[in-house]
Amino acid sequence: MAILELEHVSVSYDGQRHAVDDVSFSVEEGEIISLVGESGSGKSTLLHCMQGLLPKSAAARGKITLFGENMLELSEDRRRRMRGEQVAMIFQDTGRYMNPIARVGKQFTGYLKLHLDKSREELLELERQMLEKVHLYDVDRVLHSYPFELSGGMRQRVGIAIALSLHPRLLLADEPTSALDVTVQAQVVKELVQLCREECATIILVTHNMGVAAHISDKIGVMQNGKLVEWGSARDVIRHPQEAYTKSLLSAIVELDDEQFLCR
């Protein structure tokens, strides 16, 4: 069953050029989708407009149906209630979206309290469980830390733990591992996918890293200048790209067994 459907979605920030230009696709429950493309291709704008996070100056047209609701016409109040329990989002640097002068535990509890009617002890227990799921075992220290006291990888894991704590059916992830070191990136990507598979959650991942997209996705969408130029199963897009742009993106990736530039 399609849980998300985009029909002829266009977004413009200045009323003239389109940051997103006539994009249509649908997403089935439990799928992992990657949107890839270069800077300025509109992939983040598209992800933001799925959750109604566009600035007021932006104008979106078309239709986005998420769990049966038309997201572009939904009231802010209804949209807010969807966030967290049905749709959650993680960003490139979770630390930047957290309050720098409040401890992680306080922020985590604050988020849960908005949605759940549970006692302090029950909320704390849920926080513990979630942090352990993202392999942060020193739970007390993490909860008592300020965001800046944690490493980038730890902060990103906290972000994932918070986002998944209400068991959202759809996770929107905007470059969630791009700011991390390569080895940490590999771990966090794998954990994220495993957690979502366990919960049967759907993921839409925005990334510029074709390698990450190839490894984890069921389907890949390639964006260029606001248009969705290619859409298909990950296997087809990587193995048999149809568009010249997709081919050029794939060939620009430097691999460990490439002939060196030095020798060309």
């Binding site: 390569v182 590999a186 074709m210 190839a214 490894h215 990950a234 296997r235 193995r239 990736i253 691999e255």
Partner: peptide, 23 residues
């Protein structure tokens, strides 16, 4: 890739998400 001996180097190498292996 062939000559790496240290665990840490191997760890770095294995963390690369290659596209080619899918192609």
């Amino acid at each position: 890739v062939r000559d790496a001996r240290e665990d840490y180097t191997k760890q770095l190498l294995s963390a690369v998400f290659s596209v080619r292996e899918f192609q």
